[in-house]
Design a protein around this nucleic acid. Structure first.
Lengths: 110, 110
DNA sequence: CGAATCCATTGACGTTCGTCAATGGGTCTG
DNA sequence: CAGACCCATTGACGAACGTCAATGGATTCG
């Protein structure tokens, strides 16, 4: 490996190619997916053929119902997920207008 | 959109396809990338042809030198990044044995 | 050797996060 | 209507996070 030649006291700030706004958006997506429980939920919804009911997640994970609800809210705020209420049930699915960035990241996982 | 038929009091826990251990690992990678500063650093290293010196990052971002150092430590602990010291300088690059998962996620960004 | 440069570590502080218990609203069934 | 079920919100708490100031080690130049 070849290391660059350097001169003391002279730095070479790299040019940042991505716009700050885009960095911020991508960061939000990554934050939403960075929790193990939310990651599993997101992958589950990615691979599901039908929308999934909250009560199924509550039965799956070893956390309380309010915590599941809290995680879904995070995924909603990040624009990753979409909810449809029917009767007493809330069905979640991947957002139909998922950003291309989010789609690429989700597809890159597992 | 067609919603599943449901019966009160009967949940349908989805089968989780990913191993818990893999979920945890992926989560660590996402956590490491979820901070805007670290994300920019990681993308910078991904696209750099040569290893990049810490002092260049310190000159680039509007944060203190210890904070830059702290972020690099996070990226190191996540196995994303690799350091080589030469003289007074520390050069960072993407880890040469980056996991396939990490590589896919990095390539999916921006 | 003495000063300057680069960098990691430590300690501290405020903020955010993940979690739960408690509560309340909405919907269906008997 | 009364009870059961599903779910979101609120408030609280400990843990983790992002940041900085201060410090110290290591290296190089004069």
């Amino acid at each position: 490996m070849v290391l660059p030649e350097r001169e003391r006291g002279v730095c070479c700030p790299p040019t940042l190619k991505a716009r700050p706004q885009k960095i911020e958006q991508t960061s939000e997506i990554l934050k939403a997916l960075a929790d193990p429980t939310r990651l599993q939920i997101a992958l589950c919804l990615r691979d599901a053929k039908e929308p999934v009911c909250i009560c199924d997640f509550t039965a799956t994970f070893d956390i309380s119902q309010p915590t599941v609800s809290h995680h879904m809210a995070k995924l909603r705020e990040a624009g990753l997920v979409n909810v449809t209420k029917q009767g007493i049930w809330s069905f979640y699915r991947l957002s139909p207008d998922l950003s291309a960035a989010a789609r690429r990241i989700l597809d890159a996982i597992g």
